[in-house]
Design a protein around this nucleic acid. Structure first.
Lengths: 220, 220
DNA sequence: AAATCCAAAAATATCGATATTTATTGACAT
DNA sequence: ATGTCAATAAATATCGATATTTTTGGATTT
């Protein structure tokens, strides 16, 4: 059997395609938190075999987006206020660490990347692309830390947080706060090399968002 | 075909058995760092099918003990001095956080668990069981933090560190330092509820071990 | 009426086989 | 000799089928 058919594209591998699809569906809430994830169902939904699905679910387990129940399959990781607050705390600690390391090793090359990713985030229009650009900006801030594991943790936690944003607002945008100014503050401090100011700006950015989200997450 | 045969025991699932075996082999160095992990080879070595092996390798990817190379299979995660130092740094930050949270919420129940796990670690004889008891003691220290993700990160990092201990000493024991006294200091401060003292004792415990290991890891 | 147990159904976990991709080797042209 | 290319070999990724386990629903008993 030949797999080069429908869209004509070959997304590197069935496992990766399944992983990305499932991840997105969990992040935005198409697959509800706590919901049982049945192999056969996903298999037909994604049009791949059971093996790639299982492997994708295993990978999502590492991302803490899926839980494996001993001999009883998988389910989308549950959400809770406690979990949200734990994510927020961990992010504050780990991003503070990563940001300071990034700034400590700063180079003009990194600063240029920063300015660029910030600029792109401002220009972007669609919601989807804004999500991507926003994550890129934040990860660029931490991306000079020379600490791949730390960056991986931060990226994971960022994604886990996205989930609560969608949960709070159905995927809609932020509230009335001036997010753009907050981003600008972080950028300026980072480019200036002022680690303390950058850290304060970043953490208050997260804490403000955290408070807003907490207020919206009554039903948990 | 019936799988209830050889040892008469059924280790819950083939995937889990493979996961535990592979993990152990990587930790102690039976599977060398950076080494290609061929499915067929592991399949026959562990006497299971390819699917459980693949799934176990996927899980080990989350533990950062295995790396997946796009369409080219898996390999044991490489080691390096930089990686070791990164692990040490992350452990110091995260365990400090977890320990302080544990102490802040301390209960007599937790204190009793602590004393018990410490006692068991002192009594133990074999190397294998000491490893287990040692990890149990350290994880108990952090186990009252009410922060499952944080504890998971700490556990992961602990395991990654074990690997370097085996690498430095071929699995042998520590050097002449009085480890027992260091453990005692940590325990006492924790039970007393003195977070600062406990944190200092814990971190210096790690930093001393880190220096010793670094000195032994010339060939990286 | 409630609880228990058994049989049927569903779902998971695992295997063996096959298709696809990557790595290797040797021939051929330059 | 050296580099390129094709043919072969090896290994991975994926599928379809099967065995095992868990769940469900109803019949039987207390």
């Amino acid at each position: 059997m030949n797999m080069m058919d429908d869209t004509g594209s070959r997304e590197t591998s069935a496992t990766r395609a399944a992983y990305l699809s499932l991840r997105e569906m969990i992040l935005v809430g198409d697959l509800a938190a706590g919901k049982k994830l049945k192999i056969e169902q996903l298999r037909s939904m994604l049009d791949v075999g059971a093996s790639p699905v299982r492997e994708a679910l295993s990978l999502l387990t590492s991302d803490m987006l899926v839980e494996r129940i001993d001999q009883r399959g998988f389910r989308a990781a549950p959400v809770s206020l406690a979990n949200f607050e734990e994510i927020l705390n961990l992010r504050c600690t780990l991003e503070d660490m990563a940001l300071r390391q990034s700034i400590a090793r700063r180079t003009s090359d990194w600063e240029e990347h920063l300015v660029l990713s910030h600029h792109r985030m401002k220009r972007v229009v669609g919601t989807d692309t804004f999500e991507d650009a926003h994550k890129t900006f934040h990860m660029t801030l931490l991306g000079n830390s020379e600490s791949p594991m730390l960056e991986r943790y931060c990226s994971q936690l960022y994604d886990l947080n996205i989930r609560y944003r969608y949960l709070a607002a159905g995927g809609a945008r932020y509230q009335s706060r001036d997010i753009a100014a907050e981003h600008e503050d972080i950028l300026d401090a980072a480019v200036k090399g002022d680690a303390d100011a950058a850290s304060v700006a970043l953490l208050s950015h997260y804490r403000l968002t955290g408070e807003y989200l907490t207020s919206q997450l009554g039903g948990l």
